[in-house]
């Protein structure tokens, strides 16, 4: 199909799709006036039912925790998929040519590694109290590790996150989430039911299984992001 034909088709189909979307949107609740009952109820009950202050976290790791189990496995499968597609026998004895030459970039970048990891861990740890959580914080922790490459050397990144350890952490994160669900069965509850002591609202020891699932998600996300970047970076560092 030539470019012009394709553009013509897009113009016609896009105009129709745009008209359909606008027509559909006029039937939605007016902006700022959403009356979905589910959200109102959760905002009211999450605090005393689950002893958490961040209602979104209670939805992610409890009320819709089963949904998040699927999400964890999507992330796990994608990371493994990328590793399968890209991993080859490579000669890592060759020296990768990736050293950062600017002293300013090196100094500032490497100084930020520690603070970035700490901020990430803080986001994970307080995910059910304040904005944040395992998914968001996990990406921040991984960003701290990636700074080792961005401001330093690939070798440093590689040494700080050995393949075996990262893969173990990835599997452990996804596995721990499912294990918490199964543990609830043995405790006499339903799969992923919150059966642990709920603790004091507003402290780190609150939320029952929410902090455990949150930490599992944090571990899984950190490991998956680090693993994904490993695979892509090796592609550049050691071209086949």
């Amino acid at each position: 199909m030539s470019r012009n034909v394709r553009l013509g088709l897009f113009a016609a189909a896009g105009a129709m799709l745009a008209a359909l979307l606008v027509w559909g949107f006029t039937g939605l609740p007016a902006f700022g006036d959403f009356q979905g009952e589910y959200g109102w109820i959760l905002n009211d009950v999450a605090g005393h039912e689950r002893h958490v202050t961040n209602v979104v976290a209670s939805v992610v790791f409890d009320y819709r925790g089963f949904d998040t189990l699927g999400e964890e496995f999507i992330l796990f499968a994608a990371a493994i998929g990328v590793a399968l597609l890209l991993r080859e026998a490579r000669d890592d004895r060759e020296r990768p040519r990736d050293e950062v030459r600017s002293d300013a970039v090196r100094a500032v970048g490497l100084m930020l590694v520690g603070p970035t990891v700490v901020v990430g861990l803080y986001l994970v740890a307080h995910g059910y109290l304040t904005p944040g959580g395992g998914f968001q914080g996990g990406v921040a922790v991984a960003a701290g590790v990636v700074l080792l490459y961005a401001a330093g050397r690939y070798r440093a990144y590689s040494a700080a996150s050995p393949h075996g350890l990262v893969e173990l952490a990835e599997g452990a994160g996804a596995g721990a989430y499912a294990a918490v669900g199964v543990a609830a069965l043995f405790a006499g509850g339903l799969f992923l039911e919150n059966v642990v002591e709920l603790g004091t609202r507003g402290t780190l020891a609150s939320g029952g299984t929410i902090p455990i699932l949150n930490a599992a998600a944090g571990l899984e996300v950190t490991a998956a992001v680090v693993l994904l970047l490993h695979e892509f970076l090796e592609e550049v560092m050691y071209p086949a």
Binding site: G39, V55, V56
Partner: peptide, 12 residues
């Protein structure tokens, strides 16, 4: 507050 369910869905 605003609806927490759609926020959780957006995270997913």
């Amino acid at each position: 507050a605003v609806d927490p369910v759609v926020q959780a869905l957006t995270l997913t």
